[in-house]
Design a protein around this nucleic acid. Structure first.
Lengths: 234, 234
DNA sequence: ATTCAAATGATCGTATACAATTTGATCACG
DNA sequence: CGTGATCAAATTGTATACGATCATTTGAAT
């Protein structure tokens, strides 16, 4: 593998959870490309732990769809098919309006301030150039949706969104075209504005269209010189 | 622990998956009571495998919320709090109408036949007496919702529903009052009828109310002589 | 009799060892 | 030169071993 986050600093309690989060971040941040093999021994060496802990982390990641574990072959960063991608966005179109309505019940001024803060940060990143800024932008965009989920106070919805956002990042990494995020940012702002003016129907409507736009800006033709690669490497 | 499903017959390849499914079935079927300790050594002995495989199974079950793993203390069958229960049903109210709409897009005659078949079976169980019949009835009720999810062809939604139905079974086991299911059965029939007559809005409406009814028929006062038990045993 | 502390036993966390499977390479043969 | 078989290396699957942590009990002191 290429690189993972923060490999085993000195006084850090390197647990399964830590390894899981590190790899997860690396995948969502696109530092680990889809299809990359995650050898148990290699990962273990990076974190300076035995394969036992690594296996636990990979198993957990497999459960949330970020990693595919193939029997007797090993673990690979997931390579979502176009069909999987469609299913992920279809699920988001179902859940996110529900989250919006649930969040609206519990939202307070501090929540709104937090959301506005996220939007500002997102806007700042939209202006910058370079791969680092783009990564940060994708992450910030995901944070917006995750923050809405956290406002609901519903741990179940929150966990579902965690998974959906992470897998969406993978999909965007694979099939994303270009500067989609700038318009996405505007849409985020519109959604918050609708929430602030208590127009929930409008907010939900905007959310569904926002998800539509994200999906529409993908190029999910089976071939990116990689249909073959998927058939073989996955 | 008391008993688990089919402990290690002769030519069965006892894998992590098999153990996970066995325990999961036992929990959903209420053969394993909430709060029951699942000792790694004991479970391993039952299935005649080492703790390694058991740990994997328990970890997976923990991820889907059926088991709580407490550091250095062990794994216990989950004992969902009233708040957790509310969150589970709130999530179902969001997802299941979406599933209904998604399923309607793909539904065919064979699917409808399958649903009708489930309803017949469910009705038969409603008539019977005894704990075995009640278990089967709860399972059949869950199967109805899972079948709808499978009709969507959306693996993500399907997995979410898997988790929600399993956890709902736990909640009903804990807080369920009595003969709620008979009216639930009627509601299932009404939903299918609405689908058949292409009245999706009505079907969704019925579904939400159905979930409301399931939740309303629970007695979720913190004390069932067991708030204490939860504090200690969990 | 009650309380607290130390010892003991049980259970979990992690590492390591060995078995099983896959993969890749080498070599023989058509 | 291509094809197939055989063997070695690497990787995963599972079991076992050992250290660490927690629960419980014992026993002495108050």
């Amino acid at each position: 593998m290429t690189s993972a986050a923060a490999p085993a600093e000195d006084p850090i309690d390197v647990s399964t959870q830590y390894i899981r989060d590190s790899i997860r971040d690396a995948i969502v941040d696109r530092r680990l490309a889809p299809g990359t093999k995650l050898s148990e021994a290699d990962v273990g060496a990076l974190f300076k732990v035995s394969r036992t802990l690594v296996r636990g982390a990979l198993q957990a990641l497999s459960y949330e769809g970020l990693v595919n574990v193939e029997k007797n072959r090993g673990a690979f960063v997931a390579y979502p098919s176009p069909e999987e991608a469609r299913q992920i966005f279809a699920t988001r179109r179902v859940i996110e309006p529900g989250i919006l309505r649930e969040a609206a019940k519990h939202i307070g001024p501090s929540h709104l301030q937090h959301l506005r803060q996220l939007l500002t940060e997102e806007g700042r990143l939209t202006g910058e150039r370079g791969q680092t800024a783009r990564r940060a932008e994708i992450k910030a965009s995901g944070d917006f949706h995750l923050t809405l989920a956290s406002i609901t106070g519903n741990a179940v919805m929150q966990r579902f969104m965690d998974e959906l956002v992470a897998r969406s990042s993978l999909v965007i990494a694979l099939y994303g075209q270009s500067a989609i995020s700038s318009c996405g940012h505007q849409e985020h702002q519109d959604i918050v504005t609708a929430i602030e003016s208590d127009d929930l129907d409008r907010a939900c409507h905007l959310m569904v269209h926002h998800i539509d736009h994200i999906e529409a800006d993908l190029d999910m033709r089976e071939n990116r010189g990689s249909d073959l690669r998927e058939a073989l490497g996955l």
